[in-house]
Simulated scan of single mutants.
Amino acid sequence: MTEVSSLTGRLLVASPALADPNFDRAVVLLLDHDEEGSLGVVLNRPTPVDVDDILQGWGALAGAPPVVFQGGPVSLDSALGVGVVPGDGADEGRVLGWRRVHGAIGLVDLEAPPELLASELGSLRIFAGYSGWGPGQLEDELTEGAWYVVESEPGDVSSPAPERLWREVLRRQRGELAMVATYPDDPSMN
């Protein structure tokens, strides 16, 4: 098998050609990507469920909107916390209950007491479920043109307007990719 170049920490932005309704206009933050597969969370699928309704004490740390997000179609009964810790990330071990994934973005240990991280977290999102791909599956989808791969920014995790994230991420790209942001919701209405 050929070596896989890691896309951990980057965003997958669904192309208009992607036919899977689970990922229509999705923006996925890749938390892990290697030869064994890929795992990420959809950043722009808020649910109506408040964080405190399922994880007592974490709602106060969750960014607006303080709701649970649907991270993807896999393991919807499990929760993942993704948080941003401001700073250079040089001292990864200084923040207990947080493990760096990429830059200032990391995974939050939801078994830890929320007050342990309260002073350190710049933002937090809670995700029910995740998005997963087996070995080579994501690479095949990339070859088919289902996804655009772009750099993430720490603010993507905590966008206060997640319903606009797909367009905003595309709009900040250079060249033709920025034009995709103007793609209509329903091309048949053009």
Rank of each mutant, 00 (worst) to 15 (best):
E3A: 15
S5D: 10
S15R: 11
A17W: 06
L18N: 09
L18V: 02
A19M: 14
P21Q: 07
P21M: 12
R25M: 01
V27M: 10
L29F: 08
D34L: 02
E35F: 05
E36R: 11
S38I: 05
G40F: 01
G40N: 04
L43W: 05
V51Y: 00
V51Q: 00
G57W: 03
A60F: 00
A62E: 03
G63D: 15
P66Q: 01
V74T: 13
V74F: 00
D77K: 07
S78K: 11
S78E: 12
S78G: 13
A79G: 01
A79N: 13
G83S: 09
V84C: 05
D88S: 15
G89D: 04
D91Y: 13
R94N: 12
W98A: 07
W98Q: 08
V101Q: 06
D109T: 07
E111K: 03
P114H: 02
L116I: 07
L117Q: 04
E120P: 01
E120Q: 14
L124C: 08
F127G: 01
G132N: 04
W133M: 04
L138W: 02
E141S: 12
T143A: 15
E144K: 15
E144L: 15
E144A: 15
G145T: 02
Y148V: 13
Y148K: 05
Y148T: 13
V150R: 14
V150Y: 11
E151P: 04
S159P: 06
P160K: 09
P160F: 09
P162L: 00
R164M: 12
V169Y: 10
R172S: 09
Q173C: 14
R174W: 09
V180Y: 08
A181K: 04
A181I: 02
D186M: 02
S188G: 08
M189S: 09
N190L: 15
